[in-house]
Design a protein around this nucleic acid. Structure first.
Lengths: 338, 338
DNA sequence: CTGTTAGCGCATTCAC
DNA sequence: GTGAATGCGCTAACAG
């Protein structure tokens, strides 16, 4: 059993209000009394019950983090960035895996609000209607990560998805490729749409018409990349693209394996471009050329922005940060010289 | 602003006590009244404030999960297993990255207790003295994962670390290898010690003397594996081991890269054995032969055991589960034929 | 500056 | 069966 504020008050021979005051510096207290109280606090190793505090203050030093799936390296690194930043400011991370499911997200959002979380970080691509409604009526600080909000209704932090994919495709094109497949995520993710747009625009800007049968929208994981690759390389054995542009490194690895299983060498026969730059990208064989996302900065940046928003609560100011991406040239893409 | 129990009571024209009773089924309530109350509850979409509830009940439907680092694939998969199981039972996951630091762990433990978490899952190898003291005086249900407790003081779930490494080394030996390096984690982890013991014993049982200069105790990540590999292969260019036994797949990948950077081919010149069997192990080139851990089962199993313990609180029963491991033969190890 | 009191939202004892 | 009153541990008026 822990001590309560009453124990401290009794032992220090003051009222509980005074104890509360010295602990929260909410009202001036005479040095002598403060000294006396602190002494008892230290001796007892007393610390205020955060639950009771939450009940009154409607603050919990808890931050909800909604993500599709921790068991995805990019995401777990992102979470790491968040957590590291939060803990330094005395906040604790409430982790919620949503699988990208809107109902699950909404369920968690309600749960988190009921637990009086001080804020929420959402990795869910675009704000969905249900979420907009939720945040409109609930007024809990939120950062949308991996999303850039044009409308400025919500704060967000992200790279420029459109530009990043544009750059990736352009890189491939400048290497001489003209038939480029696209392995992306589910098309109902706004992020996917943005990236797809970037890819298409890069092709268009170079006079290349995109071939719909060469875009595969599955998941972000290795398996999806492999499956897409098997479909692509199996069905167009003689007429396959010379490059594939992927929206995650794990997809790229799956694609490479699929190519190899179809007798194609990477990068000799087909170039494969990754995305994210997770640690394995630089250690795979071939080392994967990829679009780097500053994942830790994205994570810690989300946390910082959220904390700032919590501090400035009420002003309702919105901020939108776009972090730089970059092409990391390695071995999985080669120049076409014919 | 959400509704409170008072709103429901007023609208249903009953006392708050009655509302509480129908919601918690704690005392019999007449069918008519129950009906009446439930109608209002549904209309309002009322749900009880979990914080107020926690303050009284000393229960939070929160589970603390202490891990060294989410940004490690094995661990994030483990967390995924936990979270999936917990959410099905209405619990939420409080994630804490400790870096394996004892002070941080203890800090979190206190924080979690103050938040009235219903239980804790610890991924910290052996119970440390500070932790034993904590759980002795605090009586919060706990599961030690990645640890098997001989003394039966705490519940635990794990594979047999000793046997798993023994099997890995034995596998290498039976392939004809007699000079086998060992890339392990920090020696102050009990898990490392157990695994090291298994490795040594396997060698000993086959008449091989372990060479201390061939064991490298760093971290579980790719970088550590690479560094260990560079040290090993650089300094013993002519006298290098024919195999290296690693305690994680990421270490194995690092080791492979280091070997290759020193002009050694895997598995032709040196065999490398992984551990964990994370997704990349089967997709790397060469595909990594490894010791499989049933990571999701470890995660969901931890959660199940903890939930059971919470249900049976007071009986103070301890349970120790050991899940099976297995050798997954792939391409990174070859038989020595000379 | 300090103490007394009310109340956050709920579960629960005690009367009826 | 049901309602009134008490208190979980704390903060924030309100007095003095």
């Amino acid at each position: 059993m822990s001590y309560t504020i009453k124990d401290v008050a009794r032992l220090a021979d003051v009222s509980i209000a005074t104890v509360s005051r010295v602990l929260n510096r909410s009202k001036p207290v005479s040095p002598e009394v403060r000294e006396k109280v602190m002494k008892v606090v230290d001796e007892l190793g007393y610390n205020p019950n955060p639950v009771a505090r939450t009940l009154i203050m409607k603050e919990s030093t808890l931050i909800g983090v909604l993500i599709p799936d921790v068991a995805n390296t990019f995401i777990s690194m992102f979470v790491r960035g968040i957590e590291k930043e939060l803990i330094q400011h005395g906040y604790t991370t409430l982790l919620c895996n949503t699988n990208g499911d809107t109902d699950v997200e909404l369920h968690y959002l309600n749960l988190l609000r009921d637990k009086y979380v001080d804020g929420v970080i959402l990795l869910t691509s675009a704000p969905k209607p249900e979420q907009i409604e939720f945040f409109n009526k609930n007024d809990v600080p939120v950062i949308f990560s991996s999303h850039t909000d044009k409308d400025g209704r919500f704060s967000s932090i992200n790279i420029d998805d459109y530009q990043a994919t544009y750059d990736a495709a352009k890189y491939l094109i400048e290497l001489g490729h003209r038939s480029i497949a696209f392995f992306c995520g589910p098309m109902d993710y706004y992020q996917t749409v943005r990236r797809y747009d970037g890819y298409k625009q890069a092709l268009a800007d170079h006079g290349i018409t995109a071939r719909p049968e060469w875009v595969f929208d599955k998941d972000y994981n290795l398996d999806s990349g492999y499956k897409s690759g098997m479909e692509l390389f199996a069905r167009v054995q003689e007429d396959h693209p010379t490059a594939v542009c992927c929206v995650s490194d794990m997809i790229a690895i799956g694609a490479i394996r699929a190519a190899e299983d179809n007798g194609l060498r990477v990068p000799e026969d087909v170039s494969v471009m990754g995305f994210d730059d997770i640690p394995i990208a630089g250690a795979y064989r071939p080392k994967i050329t990829t679009v780097r996302q500053p994942v830790y900065e994205l994570g810690s940046g989300s946390a910082q922005m959220l904390l700032k928003q919590i501090r400035e609560k009420g002003t309702g100011s919105c901020e939108s940060r776009v972090l730089p991406h970059g092409i990391i040239e390695r071995e999985s893409c080669r120049a076409l010289t014919d």
